[in-house]
Design a protein around this nucleic acid. Sequence first.
DNA 1: CTCCCGATAT
DNA 2: ATATCAGGAG
Length: 216
Amino acid sequence: MNVMKEWWSVTGKKTRKIAAELEKLFPVAKTELNFQNPFQLLVAVVLSAQSTDRQVNKVTEKLFLFVKEPRDLLDMGEEELSRQIRSLGLYRSKARNLIKIAEILEREYQGQVPDSFAELLKLPGVGPKTAEVIIGVGFNKPAFPVDTHVFRVARRLGLSKAKTPESVSLDLKKIFSPSSWIDLHHRLIFFGRRICKAQKPSCNICPFPEFCQKEE
DNA sequence: CTCCCGATAT
DNA sequence: ATATCAGGAG
């Protein structure tokens, strides 16, 4: 009868099914970026823009032998850093931003990475998505980072119709409970990489054909 | 909106 | 040849 009548109940079942199926598909929900502390995570996430985590790990495997805190990055210098990260693309701005970040952390935060969204956003090269990752993965506080995969998948599954990653993040935070945010974030990424791919999605093995918005 | 930008898949 | 990859700044 009424379309709006069952909106919440349908949405409740839908979100529960999505969470449950994703957990079955991807039991282990954690980042594939390698790091040993919040600073290294920050460096890895800044480097990961428009690149793959596999390429980033290839670079940080060597980089992190020397770079373990902001001071190490300043000792290395922008020239050398730029050379080491060249294979990732966008390397000039990434190198420049990382050196500035190291200077700011050293000067204003006693070499420590801040754990608040507002403070993280002040760092050059750190936007909403990166800040959410540092908070959620680095400090284990509630956060729902929305990258290109989460953005695409959330919209395809009809979890949000928002047109910016920040707005999609707000929608997802309203739909799911805070304790599930970061695991769902990781599982939506795995789902987006392996099944609900950007180019050639494997719709034949998708557990959610009934939710698919088929574009838009 | 454009630009930054190399590696990889299709 | 073109699209896309754990985006953000101007």
